[in-house]
Computed example of a mutant assay.
Amino acid sequence: MRQITTERLLIRPIQIEDFNDLQAILYDPLVVRYTRYRNVQAENNFAELFNSHFLGSIYTFGIETKDTHQLIGFYEFHPEGYSALLTYALAQSAWGKGFVAEVGNIMMAYGFEDLNFERVEAHYASLNPRSGRVMEKMGMTDLGSIGTFPSPHTGEVRTVMAYELTKENWLLNNAPEQAV
């Protein structure tokens, strides 16, 4: 994927220079509390994940601010045939600024147009309703609960909610207006 620029952000492939910034993001327990990256705290685990998953992937992208040129998060697809599961994370300093929705709209276009996904699904813990609101802003449809699971680390019971966006619905909502 090429670099894409929005008014405030650069969306680009993860680079080797992002190692420390991404490590700081994924080592923050509040950032990873509800994500698949809760277990990357050991140095070797992170280095292996960074090299095997984040570098050189057509599915994973860094989010960088245009004003500071610092990596503030990432956005990724986990492909499953013609569908993908969406994951994203932002540094706490970037929370509440609308960055995920801003990036999400562009990434949905990339997922449907360039990666040829037919469907994108995203999950969030009901304890984190802000993620659900972000998914709505990206045009995703609420699928409701997909199950209740105890946290392997805290025992805290989490209800996992799901949203989806199909290529068909994305095209309907993003079709260029026709002159009459």
Rank of each mutant, 00 (worst) to 15 (best):
T35Q: 10
Q70T: 12
A162W: 04
T87I: 05
F99Q: 05
R119E: 09
A42F: 05
T148D: 08
V120G: 02
R8T: 09
I25A: 03
T159V: 13
P150V: 08
E17T: 14
E80I: 10
G139P: 01
G139N: 01
E118I: 08
Y110V: 11
N174W: 02
D18T: 00
F46T: 04
T6C: 07
A109V: 01
P152C: 07
G104H: 02
I11D: 05
M1P: 12
P152Y: 04
H53F: 15
G62R: 03
Y75M: 12
Y75D: 09
A162D: 03
F77G: 01
Q23I: 01
R2W: 02
I25T: 00
S93N: 10
S52L: 13
F112R: 02
I72R: 06
E136I: 11
N173I: 00
I11L: 15
G155Q: 06
N128L: 13
Y124D: 07
A89V: 02
D114L: 08
F50M: 08
G104N: 06
R119Q: 11
F149D: 05
D18F: 02
F99G: 03
N51F: 05
E43I: 11
D21A: 15
N169F: 06
G111M: 01
R130P: 07
L172Q: 14
T159P: 02
E156L: 10
E102R: 04
T60S: 15
I11P: 04
Y88L: 06
M138R: 00
G98Q: 10
D28A: 04
R133Q: 14
E64K: 04
V32A: 01
N105M: 10
L165S: 03
Y34K: 07
N20I: 10
S93H: 06
G81Q: 05
E168R: 11
V134F: 01
R2D: 10
Y82I: 10
V180T: 12
M1C: 08
L9Q: 11
L165P: 00
G56R: 08
L165K: 05
I4C: 01
Y88A: 12
G144I: 04
A94Y: 07
D18P: 00
D114M: 09
S131K: 07
A109L: 04
K137S: 08
M138W: 03
F61M: 14
V157K: 14
M140K: 05
H123M: 13
M138A: 03
R133V: 10
G111A: 08
D67E: 14
H69Q: 15
D142H: 13
P150Y: 05
P13E: 11
F19G: 02
L26F: 13
G144S: 03
N174A: 03
Y37H: 15
L86M: 11
L143Y: 08
G73Q: 09
A175H: 11
L30D: 15
V160N: 10
E177S: 10
